[in-house]
Nucleic acid binder design. Structure first.
Lengths: 361, 361
DNA sequence: AACTTCAACTAAAACGTTTTCGATAAATTT
DNA sequence: AAATTTATCGAAAACGTTTTAGTTGAAGTT
């Protein structure tokens, strides 16, 4: 075709001389231009099929580019366009089924839209969250999706988020959010999830309904506890602080569980996560009690454990994947049409009760 | 100090005029240079504390930079240095405990070394793997860490990997690897893990030892099946194909499980993953048989399910986090000292048997 | 013949850095 | 006093693109 043998030959010589190892170095517009005796701009336009360029040169350039497998350099394009096509995701923990599920939703949607995802794990630490965020904010990404670390929620310091949004970088918070931050959010109705679970217990005739939870500074735990209390009061069942077992960390202490169940007589347990629920169930079963006959269990987060426990754990599904997709959708919308009017939405997803063997039905 | 009020004032005016919204736009070297009446190179050097620059201008520049929170643009630096400080991770599935664990190891090590991680999920698809890889290879990353998708292993086509390595981009494969690819690898000794598990069964007096596995084109399954067979033969127990239950996909068919256990009398089961094992245990328990008295179970991948099953599932731990750290270490070493001699290592980790209630001890 | 129009192409700036090679003036040496 | 050194600083290229604003020569118009 339009490629002369001499041209191709010269090119190969040049490139095999540069390195003695057989490295196929990436080719650039400049190389194509030089070999074909045209300017860089012509090559750039020819590859975009611009009307400005004659059809014969377009063919020559395109053939050459294909032959040498030219692919534009992402970094150069990012610098020029001030658009990286990357989105930053900061989550407290990657080895956590719910976050992983959300991440899958984000990744799926983002990828379909041509975005890549850079993940940073805050490890529940405020400092790491700040460091990671500042690092990514310096040009590496076009927007953030994140769930606050517990360290940040405890410290209640959101200056790093404010700085980012003030720079005009879009931010979407999911699951672990904070009132004071002006940005888009996507959460599930945790309060309602707990409310519905407790209501189900009561309909099933349960009277002494316990709650296993973590410390209140985690926004979701707080919401769930509120729903628990509300359902009890709405149904004329007293709210009794003694029926709340609060773990100070994610480290489960079997002693606390034992003390609690020895002290309090309960016939139903709502847990803010799977792990606490499974531990409770194991303890109850080890005491020879039957689930759900003697005690019912419902746990938040419909993960693997709920599904494969014996009996299966009735769960409040949080629709993580959907949450991730929505977060990504909102973010990319903001990135691509960065309108000046600052309007923020909060999408609230409805939780679903997945009934299994740990409750009667 | 060296900042005059007028300077700062002018600057603020300029920036608040540019946008009517209160956007704190990122400041660049050029801005600092203009405001301070020096050249860009001087600013650049001053910020690096270069000896070339007089101490008073250094102070002026540094103070100004600090005041306006100057941070260098990562993209520009990447373009200049041809180093992104990003590593690309491609895994088949993120909602999978083992991969997640490896990812954590990668992220932890990479972050400590100042690298960010871009994750792409191949979804077990050859095409997605290729697309993602080519996308990232165009300048977005300094190296790859990946586990092959099942689609790729089935197709047995590794040209996308070859292209990347031929371009001089370092690649580390983990867990799901292939012989033919010339690159660094980190795997666990799957064969030995299976061998040890079966040996334990035999020591416990088991005779009819079943294997639940997936199709052979998954490299790890193949290795595990080999270890299973080897242990049987080494101990003078016949290798019987009828005792192998092979699932065609990750979708579990309860019928296949039922047929299998109805047809074959077994007293021990080795499973190539947790899920298959848990399903087997549930079926056995539903038939009123006792674990481990009537049937023992051991499963690969020491994940959440093994830990929380009843009884706990004795598991072959794959040390995912360690695997991730090692992969990242090898990769970053290759990135930072890209020596010309191409030598590739394969690190083989030893599996560990975690004994729980599903086996006797 | 002088003009406009058009097709086809190029130069150069820009994105934000880093770095090499000067340039200038002051300080030091001879 | 002339020559040399030293301390500070700046111009410009480079990384690989995109895009604006030309430039050129040929064709068409009056």
């Amino acid at each position: 075709m339009y490629l002369t043998n001499t041209n191709a030959f010269v090119f190969l010589i040049v490139y095999s001389l540069e390195k003695n190892s057989p490295l196929k170095r990436k080719i650039t517009l400049k190389h194509i231009a030089r070999e074909l005796g045209v300017s860089i701009s012509t090559v750039s336009k020819a590859l975009k099929n611009s009307e400005e360029i004659g059809s014969d040169t377009k063919e020559r350039v395109q053939a050459f580019a294909k032959l040498y497998n030219y692919k534009p350099n992402n970094i150069a394009i990012s610098l020029k366009n001030k658009r990286t096509k990357n989105i930053g995701v900061i989550i407290p923990d990657i080895v956590h089924h719910f976050f992983t599920t959300v991440f899958r939703g984000i990744e799926k949607y983002a990828n379909a839209k041509g975005y890549n995802v850079i993940v940073c794990v805050s490890d529940e630490s405020f400092d790491k969250e700040v460091i990671n965020m500042e690092l990514l904010a310096n040009g590496s990404i076009d927007g953030f999706i994140m769930a606050l670390s517990s360290g940040t929620q405890l410290k209640n310091d959101y200056n790093h988020l404010k700085e980012v949004t003030e720079q005009g970088i879009p931010l979407v918070l999911f699951d672990r959010v904070a009132e004071d931050i002006l940005c888009d959010k996507v959460i599930i109705n945790d309060r309602k999830g707990a409310y519905n679970a407790v209501t189900k217990f009561i309909k099933d005739g349960r009277k002494r309904i316990a709650l296993i939870t973590s410390e209140d500074y985690i926004s979701v735990s707080r919401e769930r506890a509120a729903g628990y209390k509300e359902a009890l009061l709405d149904n004329g069942i007293g709210y009794n602080e003694d029926l709340i077992l609060k773990f100070p960390s994610m480290e489960i202490s079997e002693n606390l569980i034992e003390d609690f169940f020895e002290r309090e007589k309960v016939d139903a347990v709502l847990s803010v996560n799977e792990i606490f629920a499974i531990h409770g169930m194991r303890y109850i079963q080890s005491k020879g009690l039957k689930i759900p006959k003697d005690i019912s269990f419902i746990g938040f987060t419909d993960g693997l454990l709920s599904k494969y426990a014996s009996p299966g754990l009735t769960a409040i599904a949080q629709h993580g994947e959907q949450m991730g997709e929505i977060a990504a959708e909102i973010l990319i919308e903001k990135i691509e049409n960065d309108m000046e009017e600052e309007t923020y939405v909060t999408r609230v997803l409805e939780p679903t009760l997945i009934e299994r063997g740990s409750t009667v039905n």
